[in-house]
């Protein structure tokens, strides 16, 4: 009440109240080509169907979610987050339980459904290589960690998340089925051996820029970003050998202002049609089990769920439990 009063008085004094649209909500994702596709195939069609305007924001920032929830001032309604974070944040009380009377979960891939989240899309960390910039293209994780055979900078995902540590262990010869629990000492030792040659990318668009400009002629990338890059005429080679899968999830931060609209948006975004359109454009796999029959067969074959041979699934539950501890070690290692 007091807060409102203060705000109202100031607004009146200054005489500049931005008139908010009656029905609107905020969708936050990771930016770049992926968010463009989410806007086109999920948000725009949602707005024309429901007349609820969707404001795009980003990039996703877990600290910001925590800050907003703690301060009781949540400006994001639906957020695209990494799967392990969704599991952890749900347990930590940072998320609204999803309303499954609005969201139909019967046809959603059950691997990615929790009380607080549903799968957004599903992707693989693969080895990408710019054929014009690189002398030779690494085919396996061991190749990517071999600076003698493949000299030059290599790009890796900057943040602490499933993917890089698994890749380091696989490169060091750990069997795919013996990855978890992760041997962090061994992983960091392996990473140390190439540290001077790593260029970090902090978001999808940055990763594409690094690869396309030859800044880093190869590295570990989200598969969809390579598909998008190839579509712009860059000669990209993708190696699916031991591709490491993970999923993004859609969540609603606790105390979101437009909860009802958020649930409707998630229901719309995970419907078969929207999932298939998004997958066809981005090269990420759909999380709706009915989406694949709406898709072009040729495109369908290039998606991560068709690369099952030698595929490695990152263990989301392991990460959800150990996320903070790994993160602490990861960032202090990076800062060294």
């Amino acid at each position: 009440m007091k807060k409102q009063l203060v705000a109202t008085v100031f607004t009146a004094l200054v005489g500049l109240s931005g008139s908010a649209m009656a029905d609107e909500m905020v969708f936050t994702s990771w930016g770049g080509t992926t968010q463009d596709a989410q806007k086109t195939h999920w948000a725009d069609s949602f707005t024309s169907k429901t007349k609820i305007a969707v404001i795009q924001d980003g990039p996703t920032d877990y600290g910001k979610i925590k800050a907003m929830v703690e301060a009781g001032s949540v400006t994001w309604d639906v957020v695209d987050v990494e799967g392990d974070y969704a599991v952890q944040a749900g347990k930590a009380g940072l998320l609204e339980p999803l309303d499954f009377s609005i969201i139909d979960k019967s046809r959603l891939d059950p691997r990615f459904v929790t009380d607080y989240s549903v799968g957004s899309f599903y992707y693989s960390f693969v080895i990408g290589c710019n054929k014009t910039a690189a002398g030779a293209c690494p085919k396996t994780w061991a190749d990517l960690f071999n600076t003698v055979k493949f000299p030059g900078k290599r790009a890796f995902y900057k943040w602490s998340a499933p993917g890089v540590i698994e890749a380091a262990l696989l490169a060091d010869g750990v069997a795919a089925d013996k990855l978890y629990p992760l041997d962090l000492d061994r992983a960091f030792k392996k990473l140390d051996s190439i540290k001077a040659d790593i260029v970090w990318w902090d978001g999808g668009a940055a990763s594409q820029q690094l690869l396309a400009s030859g800044e880093a002629p190869f590295g570990s990338f989200w598969n969809g970003r390579l598909t998008a890059l190839a579509a712009t005429g860059v000669t990209v080679e993708t190696s699916w050998d031991q591709n490491i899968t993970a999923a993004d999830s859609l969540v609603v931060p606790k105390g979101a202002k437009n909860k009802k609209a958020a649930m409707k948006f998630i229901a719309h975004a995970t419907a078969d049609m929207q999932q298939s359109q998004f997958a066809m454009e981005t090269g990420y796999a759909p999380t709706n089990l009915d989406a694949s029959r709406l898709m072009d067969e040729a495109v369908r074959r290039t998606l991560p769920d068709m690369q099952a041979k030698s595929q490695v699934n990152a263990d989301m539950n392991y990460w959800a439990v150990n996320r903070d501890e790994i993160g602490k070690r990861w960032y202090s290692w990076q800062a060294k």
Binding site: K66, A67, Q334
Partner: peptide, 20 residues
């Protein structure tokens, strides 16, 4: 800057924004 040479202002922002 890179990950290995953060400065004070960035650290303050990170404490507040990312680590809350």
């Amino acid at each position: 800057g890179g990950t290995a040479n953060m400065m004070l202002a960035e650290m303050i922002a990170q404490f507040v924004q990312s680590l809350v």
